[in-house]
Design a protein around this nucleic acid. Structure first.
Lengths: 211, 211
DNA sequence: TCGTGTGAACGAATTCACAGCG
DNA sequence: CGCTGTGAATTCGTTCACACGA
């Protein structure tokens, strides 16, 4: 197997897409897929698909394509999905609740084992099995439950403090929905999701469309 | 003013970031910012900032930097935020509700003027001023209220049908939260936000960290 | 002098195009 | 023959480095 050195972020995201497509092909009973099949689904070129996959070795059969099941398993492994990941949701507002209850979650191996808020009215309430804890207890709980990934859905003002507490508790990765640029040390993986930025990239596109 | 030809998607997103930073600098009473100031906030290089801004003309003063207010206004204009945009939320579940109530929204010039669902229990309910309509009426309502942007928060299974209806109704842009790749014609601007893909890019990073 | 604006150099990612294997 | 795997060519984005203006 090839040594994984530097894979671009966009290539990794494409792997996630391929995974969805493979599920669909598998569900449809297809045993093999060509790079062209996957490319068509993803709206990209077949060369792109082959290049992406070739970074991780070669499992395609020339003249035939890739075996759906095996390729799927391989991508699951590459993405690190062959295990469950323990997740905390920090900020038990509407967005936190929406993400928590999202089913695809559990199915992909993400297990939300803690939720936090500062609102006394929310602390102690339950989301299914999970009791909402006080953010003040964050470090203790994160450590005790060996949580590796945190999803931050607090208001902007609280986000950096929460991030600091998470870092202090030894979190490995943060997925940040708060509209604020977070400062975290390099060893903590950070990803931002911003509704505002997505919308603004839409309005930019709409404003500067072909003329 | 310079002709806007091809600006990379990442450059546009950085403009959104600069806008946030400028708000902060303005709130702090700072009258001018240098590319270095902005770069520091964004964790990028000053050359990147200057290059990004230079695509749209030059308003910096050498030796001084950029006037905060004027630059802010300019970026607002570039991103197409100098007007309000009429938005519909399709899918009145928890996620739709969370996005709807997000305040930063209105402040940035996005006005949610319609919400849709298929659930009879939800249709007719109100979100503030907005009455939840039946998805069956989508085309009519989108046209009548001159909605340009749709935020799709339906389950994956329903997303493509909704997208088709939106396209038929003449929507200009779709922000898709459903975990499904949508097919839309080229003239419709589409952007995907996927919790799953973000999480998987995190687990990839965690799995392949420095060794 | 300081910091912008920008061509030139560089580096990264995508696409091309084809040899080679099933 | 069909489709993979991959170097080579190309395109695209970022960084460098410096001339020039405030």
């Amino acid at each position: 197997m090839k040594r994984i050195t530097k894979i671009s972020d966009s290539a990794v995201r494409r792997l996630s897409h391929y995974l969805r497509f493979l599920d669909e092909f598998e569900a449809a009973g297809q045993r093999t897929v060509s790079s062209g099949d996957l490319a068509e689904r993803g709206g990209i070129t077949s060369a792109q698909v082959r290049k992406d996959l070739s970074h991780f070795g070669s499992f395609g059969k020339r003249g035939t394509g890739y075996p759906v099941g095996a390729l799927r398993e391989r991508i699951v492994e590459i993405l690190g999905l062959g295990r469950t990941w323990r997740v905390a949701v920090v900020g038990a507002g509407k967005l936190g609740a929406a993400l928590f209850q999202y089913g695809g979650f559990r199915r992909q191996g993400f297990e939300v084992v803690a939720a936090f808020d500062t609102d006394p009215a929310k602390i102690g309430r339950r989301w299914g099995e999970v009791v909402i804890d006080d953010v003040a207890d964050l470090a203790r709980v994160v450590r005790k439950r060996q949580i590796e990934i945190a999803i931050v859905t607090t208001p902007a003002e609280a986000a950096q403090d929460v991030a600091d507490a998470l870092v202090a508790a030894g979190i490995a990765a943060i997925l940040n929905f708060a509209p604020r640029k977070l400062a975290v040390p390099l060893e903590v993986t950070l990803r931002d999701v911003s509704l505002t930025i997505e919308l603004e990239s839409l309005t930019f596109a709409l404003t500067h469309r072909e003329r």
